[in-house]
């Protein structure tokens, strides 16, 4: 084809009319069909199935995120203050221990009496504890802690 002087419209009509020669289309069809027969046809998936799959994926992601969060960050409640053991006087626990040790050198009736005494004391102490606790609960904020511990003969270490 010569590139002679032509107008735009002439060029277009020339390009339109000059179709390329399609040699041996049967061979190309055979080749296409051979390739196609080797490939599996992807069947249309049900929309509901796809939505379920998507939602399951989202749920799985959320669970993984929650798990990571649990492992990475400790909740604030874990850091709640625990009263130190030193708050309670050692003298109190020593006295109890001495009383228990003393029991071994006494006779059985005496021991029984002692145990009864201790139980009575504990009951009385428990009652005092309960009433003091209720008092403290009902009292306004900022109540003196020393006053609270004095009820039980407990010294407060500062």
């Amino acid at each position: 084809m010569k590139h002679e002087n032509i107008s735009y419209d002439e060029l277009i009509s020339k390009l339109k009319s000059a179709s390329p020669q399609f040699s041996d289309p049967e061979a190309l069809t055979r080749s296409i069909m051979l390739s196609v027969e080797r490939l599996p046809l992807r069947q249309k998936q049900h929309t509901a199935l796809r939505i379920t799959g998507f939602l399951s994926g989202v749920a799985a992601c959320l669970l993984v995120c929650l798990l990571v969060r649990e492992l990475a960050w400790q909740p604030a409640t874990f850091a709640a203050p625990i009263p130190p053991a030193a708050v309670f006087s050692e003298a109190y626990s020593d006295r109890i221990a001495a009383e228990i040790e003393d029991v071994s050198s006494r006779s059985v009736p005496e021991k029984m009496r002692m145990v009864a005494d201790i139980m009575q004391k504990r009951r009385a102490q428990s009652r005092r504890w309960k009433s003091a606790h209720e008092k403290l609960q009902n009292s306004p904020l900022g109540v003196d802690k020393e006053q609270y511990f004095n009820l039980f003969n407990i010294s407060v270490s500062r």
């Binding site: 390329p20 190309l28 296409i32 390739s35 046809l41 992807r42 069947q43 249309k44």
Partner: peptide, 27 residues
């Protein structure tokens, strides 16, 4: 394809690839 690629071989390759893609994406 011939008018775009200006080559018979390229056009034939494009035809073959097109129909393979069509088959794969029929769904």
């Amino acid at each position: 394809a011939f008018r775009l690629l200006c080559s018979e071989d390229d056009a034939k390759d494009a035809v073959q690839e097109t129909f393979i893609r069509v088959w794969q994406r029929l769904n």
